[in-house]
Nucleic acid binder design. Structure first.
Length: 222
DNA sequence: CCATTAAGATACT
DNA sequence: AGTATCTTAATGG
């Protein structure tokens, strides 16, 4: 046994207990630390790409992660954000056999994530009540969220979609000032820069935002 | 200065 | 709502 591994395990337990002491029971936390790996990411890092084989499920410890789909032409669409305590529904559904990811996960800020082997999922489902609840609840929550996304896509016009997008981003970034360009928004909503510019101008006229070069202040985000 | 790039405008599909 | 194209404005060397 080398000292570094002992140290990192101890550190890991401290970190997890600190964040999840009410969520998971102690033996589970210990197991999570012994088989899980904590990794740090910075803004823009690709955590998972489409086509990657899912061997581990991620659990967000800090920061935020955006989850998106990619179509055949490389067009992207933002699905949702993962924050503290969240996990990816995609990996939950494939715990029985290793499969490929349909989604792409990019770090929205600096983030820490613990990766747990998917093989442990089933084992823990039986062994730990708190784990079972957690998995079922997350699955349920993501399902609801996906329905909302579909609803938004199908029934809301682009202007509403942009404003919802901005408000969501204000929440995950914890700041009403967003450092983002029109082109970047267009990419995330799978639209075009000109269209975003047009509608952003309208939002500005309606006093919902104030625009600057490379950033935007969201005024009406409640 | 100039090159690069974000954002606005206009016109057409 | 999206594409193409041009103009204008900021930014950083």
């Amino acid at each position: 046994m080398s000292m570094p591994s002992l140290d990192s395990t101890t550190l890991c337990i401290e970190k997890l207990v600190d964040k999840f002491e009410y969520e998971f029971e102690q033996p589970l936390l210990k197991e999570m630390c012994s088989v899980g790996k904590i990794k740090s990411f910075s803004e823009g890092d690709i955590i998972m790409d489409t086509g990657d084989i899912l061997t581990h499920m991620p659990l967000v410890l800090s920061g935020s992660v955006k989850v998106m789909t990619e179509d055949s032409d490389g067009g992207e669409l933002l699905l949702y954000y993962l924050e503290f305590g969240d996990t990816c529904a995609m990996t939950l559904s494939c715990c029985t056999k290793p499969s490929k990811s349909n989604i792409k996960a990019i770090s929205e800020s600096n983030a820490e994530i613990i990766f747990l082997p998917v093989q442990k999922m089933e084992e823990w489902m039986i062994k730990y009540h708190s784990w079972r609840s957690y998995v079922l609840e997350s699955y349920n929550y993501r399902f609801k969220e996906m329905l909302e996304s579909i609803d938004n896509l199908a029934f809301n016009n682009m202007e509403d979609r942009i404003f919802k997008y901005l408000r969501e981003k204000v929440i995950v970034n914890k700041s009403p000032k967003l450092n983002i360009t029109h082109a970047a928004i267009a990419a995330e909503l799978n639209s075009s820069r000109v269209v975003i510019s047009r509608l952003m101008k309208k939002l500005e006229r309606d006093n919902k935002i104030i625009q600057n070069r490379n950033s935007v202040d969201v005024l009406d985000f409640h």
